[in-house]
Design a protein around this nucleic acid. Sequence first.
DNA 1: AAGATCAATGCAATCGATTGCATGATTTTC
DNA 2: GAAAATCATGCAATCGATTGCATTGATCTT
Lengths: 351, 351
Amino acid sequence: MDTVRKTPTIQDVARHAKVSAATVSRVLSTPEKVSEATRERVHAAVQETGYTVNQAARSLRMQKAKTILAAMPGIGNPFYSTILDAVVNEATRRGYGVLVASRLGDDPAAWLADYFHSNRADGLLVFDGSLDTRRLHSIAGEGAVLPLVAAYDELPDPQINSVITDNLQAAERAVAHLYDLGHRRIGHIAGPSRNTFPSERLVGFRKALFDHHLEIRPEWIMQGDYTMPSGQAAGEAFAAMKDRPTAIFSANDEMAIGFISAIRRHGLDCPKDFSVIGFDDIAISQNYAPALTTMRQPRELIGKIATQTLINLLEGNVRSSSPVRVVLSSELVVRESTAPSAPAIRAVGRH
Amino acid sequence: MDTVRKTPTIQDVARHAKVSAATVSRVLSTPEKVSEATRERVHAAVQETGYTVNQAARSLRMQKAKTILAAMPGIGNPFYSTILDAVVNEATRRGYGVLVASRLGDDPAAWLADYFHSNRADGLLVFDGSLDTRRLHSIAGEGAVLPLVAAYDELPDPQINSVITDNLQAAERAVAHLYDLGHRRIGHIAGPSRNTFPSERLVGFRKALFDHHLEIRPEWIMQGDYTMPSGQAAGEAFAAMKDRPTAIFSANDEMAIGFISAIRRHGLDCPKDFSVIGFDDIAISQNYAPALTTMRQPRELIGKIATQTLINLLEGNVRSSSPVRVVLSSELVVRESTAPSAPAIRAVGRH
DNA sequence: AAGATCAATGCAATCGATTGCATGATTTTC
DNA sequence: GAAAATCATGCAATCGATTGCATTGATCTT
């Protein structure tokens, strides 16, 4: 047994195979340029020594890190962590490492751009809608273009590559589901708006009500911020109403769950007294009581496709100069939290 | 405006400040070795050029990547993603990057060890209990010691550094809580056992029952695997019992939630008909209906301390040769899913 | 005042992998 | 059969930062 064995370098392999380091390198990256015989000797030597390429050296020489950076608003959020999972899987499959950045300091854009200047990452996946991508680009350098793919809800700067879901249509689909169940008095728990623009799901909600000739009552549109407590707050507001909607479309599942549990404390039951449809289909939704009807976002797909897009970009497989835009569609998942509206049932009973 | 400006190197800074690259390097790492005047010139030049050290070059020269690797069983799991969040924050604060690895391929240990051979990461945080740390060590190299800190529940190999929680005592505390509420018929939903060893929480459960002179009924110990569906399965088993316990201690919150929602379908109510206490205090627990009583694990702390421990190790701040072991304690959080047992209430009523 | 000491800085080697160019060997072509 | 084309391989420069050693000039010692 050797005493102090350091990790083998390409030189060690070369020595074992009795060739030059250059040849070893070629065997590993462009095997067709090397004769069969030497190729085998080198492979054997690689086995013997247990050689692995030193990424630091390769990065330095090649000016690329084979690593992508994922910027998330909060990894703790189950919605994003599922996406991250998909990102890691896909990146690993393609031979890339995944660095995770959390928002830190007062200039996150500068902080992220630093990863590129310092040659730690080649590309960036942005899942954080609050990040200023324009600023990011400008910091990244005048000459160079920072390869980045954004994947978050509100449609960002149309100039950048993005993977998003069809929020508008999905919101309409959600309302249509409630309508089909006989609901005519429908409220909404909205997500936070970005830069004075109303969120797409709210817009879709409005459009759907309009299309179905339903009244849009401002007091039935409650403002939330995608967290459970804000859903609970909406629930309290709902409970305090004299004249309540019979169904609620929540802009995400967490608020829907907060809403339902707050309301339950007031002796109201979902779906008996009111229906709720959420958005996202997070893990808990199917096991919540009542199991939540929701618009499922293909989170794994978002992560996977965003990663593929970025890596294709990095490897120059994409020649088009216009930004890549992928829109994925959400899927209605009907569970227990939505039911025919009480009046509709009564109507049936009277018949 | 320059046309094609590449990212500046230390040479560029040197030229600007009219010193050698060596001096620039010294200003950045050992400022006290440089005279006040030059120091200022160099700092100015750094500002002007917008220089950032090239990590690839530094890694190559220093033989360290300033990056740690986090191995998670599944990032999608909300329990782990909270930990990861803390890891990223702490690592960033200390100037380290965080690479995330998912389990891939048929030899995860080899896969992870590769990150070290290839000089991509300096240390490893293991949150995945199913990883064979012995094998990892042996692969990592005969001579070198792979710096690693494990943070997962079942006490691993006592030789390795670890950050864990006091599962045994916490389990006893959970049972004590049920006992104090008057419950005498207590069941358990167990997590999967590792290598034929029963899980610590199960051991703690048994010990607590024994200490309280309660009967341990094997049919009241249901086997789960930490997932919601397995909790639901336990719920079905519970519903089918002729003679049921009045309280359940679940080895984690997800199973507890699955359990409660399954049982609710059978017309039984928590906490009226039975009490449930969980373990972990994941985000959903406080908003579930009923809000879940649980043993809270300090997840942020686990992530933070594990990271600190690892980085201290890497930077040689730890001189002790014996492994570092940190045990954090869990905290009982009483909410709505546990209530005085029905017999106890009746007894009070009769009085 | 001459040698010793010290502080500040530069020189050049080094980390490990990649690749353009040169070289020598072999095969093809007319 | 000689020139040309083709192939396999090695040489050496390169990527950017760090650091031991050498050099220079200034200050100190006796």
